[in-house]
Design a protein around this nucleic acid. Sequence first.
DNA 1: CGTTTTGCTTGATTCATGTCAAAAAATCGC
DNA 2: GCGATTTTTTGACATGAATCAAGCAAAACG
Lengths: 249, 249
Amino acid sequence: MKPEFSRRQPVNETRCERCSLHARCLPLGLDLKALESFDAIIERPRPLKRGEALVRQGDHFESLYVVRSGSLKQSVAQEGQRDQVTHFYLPGELVGLDGIGDTACYGSVVALESAFVCELPFSRLEDLAERLPELRGQLYRCMSRELRNDQRMMCLLSGRTADQRLASFVLGLSERFRARGCSPYCYHLSMSRSDIGSYLGLALETVSRVLGRFQDQKLVSVEGRELTIHEHAALVALAEEGVGRHSGI
Amino acid sequence: MKPEFSRRQPVNETRCERCSLHARCLPLGLDLKALESFDAIIERPRPLKRGEALVRQGDHFESLYVVRSGSLKQSVAQEGQRDQVTHFYLPGELVGLDGIGDTACYGSVVALESAFVCELPFSRLEDLAERLPELRGQLYRCMSRELRNDQRMMCLLSGRTADQRLASFVLGLSERFRARGCSPYCYHLSMSRSDIGSYLGLALETVSRVLGRFQDQKLVSVEGRELTIHEHAALVALAEEGVGRHSGI
DNA sequence: CGTTTTGCTTGATTCATGTCAAAAAATCGC
DNA sequence: GCGATTTTTTGACATGAATCAAGCAAAACG
């Protein structure tokens, strides 16, 4: 069993200054004084059990959240269609940016495993941003980065094959784990095949089959939800390959 | 021939106060004094010819742009793959939000027809936002709205059939035209079938065929790039239908 | 004003991926 | 620890949409 985030983030480490996510979190770049003001507006870590909802679609928008440990998924339910998973969130990532300026939350956010989140009431964050240009900049940058991620996702969904989508997905997670100081080559998938399928626009059976094929080709090994990357370069090559759908090049 | 935006927006109307897009544009909600400060940082309308690039992928990010007339597309070129269209921009819409905090522009933005854009140098906009809370809020709201749009797009791309994608596309444009005071039932497509296909993740032949089928079913008529919606309700029903891909409901 | 280019439509065929079904494995609850 | 539930794998089959290949229409160009 791999160590999980929850084990690495003792609950009592409640101050931003001491938080090990400091370097990847919203208050990045704030000086000590600013960080203390920031720290002051945070609602202290809130524990979530697997399957528990942090926000429900349609809830009144009030806060952003930073994942402190564990992982979550966002999913949106539309008009009698199957729920669609739109995001996975790892420690340090910001939840709720898509609710700003809207009355209701766009989707539901649910814990995929035991998790802690810090709550940032948006109105207080705005007040603080008025005084802290750095924080303002960070907020813009976070939103803009998310826009770029979403666009990358749109490209993935509209132009690439199932194999390429899964290669990108596996590599994307790998990169995110690496950035958090976890092994990029061997990690735990906290989401089900069905979640992955929904996120990537594939049937869950296809996810299972492709992962199996990757394993046969010795690119990765998958045992349940433990994934090990063996041929990083080959996955990159596959993900970037010119021959997607709609006659590549 | 329908009136086009360019005919409705005389070039010499250069002040924000007199701009007819006022109500849909970034400075929405600013008081007169604030509006004047905002007006002062705008680089005056810049004309673009069909096919001309406003920004090229990889350009250094410096400014946001507001479309004043005409329309544009954003497309990103990846690793030897076919270009992928990621956005269409209509008058009043904000171009470039995805470049904030990044050194380079994420994609190229090209005029689909003759167009004018107002340039907003981002550093000056940031300075101004420091003093104008309303403007700050507007910026957050614009970015957040775009996040929601991108997510809607992701849902469209990963869960819906070709017919549903095109129905949504046609209705989406209709809504955007309506919001701009143009006819929502009869409008001009400034983009090619190939652009639409790229945007929706479909082959251009499929776009052509589905549009043809819609015409046979008397939902719309399409003559070249002139589109008329006959059965709005039926299109809505189709777009929202539970039976997408991945066994609806 | 004819020629070339570009964009659009249409048909035939193929293929990747979805759907349905059932078994196997893992996880959960008591 | 054992039956019940959920998740995952695997197989057989169906099908929507891509691809390939013309042909046609409408601009753009000399």
